[in-house]
Simulated scan of single mutants.
Amino acid sequence: MERNRSDEKTRRKPSGAAVPRADLTEALYRAFFEEWAERGFSALSLERVAARAGAGKAAIYRRFPSRLAFADAAISTLGLQIALPQAEHKTLAEDILALLLRARAVLRHPLARRILPDLHAEAARSAEMRAINDRLALARREQAEALLNRAVCRGQLPEQVDRDLALDLMVAPLYWRMVVRGVTPSRAELAMQSRAIEAGLKASTRDRARQ
């Protein structure tokens, strides 16, 4: 009896190098962050990461040549998620509130709360980790700068606004409260904070113009 060629093709395994699967890559990222949160980057084991993801260590090295490269890819992916475009609102305070709500969603995650302080500590010791940390910060600052540009176009902030100061003010108080103090603010508290940031930016711009 002649074998069905379509069945044979279905059963045949692909030859050549294995193709990295997106779902496995995502599982490896999750396992990497879980391992990092539990043990810190300095004690992070790629063998344990692979085991958490239900994969072999070879699955990691097909994607990343080193632990640092793995961290770079995982953090860059997180940075892109944080920097997703936000809807435009009518006022600067509303735009700031939307940014703070998104930052709160990231910072309230238990893994983020444990990893971020360790990331900053590693960045203080390692130039390579400093570069990775800077790219993550840049993703956040680019999103916040788009918010400032909209406010300038609407006439809610002058063109000469101190952008470095403004970008620091946007999320730094929230980071301090959530990551350093371990307190999660309510939406009402974030709305108050957004109005305070708006007022501070306008006041600092007036002071700068008088200098």
Score class of each variant (00 low, 15 high):
L174Q: 11
K9W: 12
M178I: 14
T184P: 12
E2Q: 01
L78Y: 02
R62T: 05
L174M: 15
T91S: 10
L84S: 07
P117K: 04
D207M: 11
D72N: 00
F70H: 00
A43D: 06
N4P: 12
W176D: 12
F32V: 02
E88V: 10
R130Q: 07
K57F: 01
A121L: 11
E128P: 00
K13G: 06
R206G: 05
H120E: 07
A191R: 09
A166Y: 07
I82V: 15
F32I: 00
M178D: 14
V183H: 13
A93D: 02
E88T: 00
M192K: 15
E38I: 02
D72A: 05
Q81D: 08
A123P: 09
V49A: 03
V106G: 04
R30M: 02
M192A: 12
S76T: 13
D95S: 11
K9A: 13
E94P: 06
S126G: 08
R52F: 04
F70Q: 00
L201Q: 07
P20Q: 05
R108W: 00
L24W: 01
R39S: 03
S66G: 04
W176P: 04
A146N: 15
D162K: 08
V161L: 11
L78F: 15
Q156F: 02
L68F: 07
A27E: 00
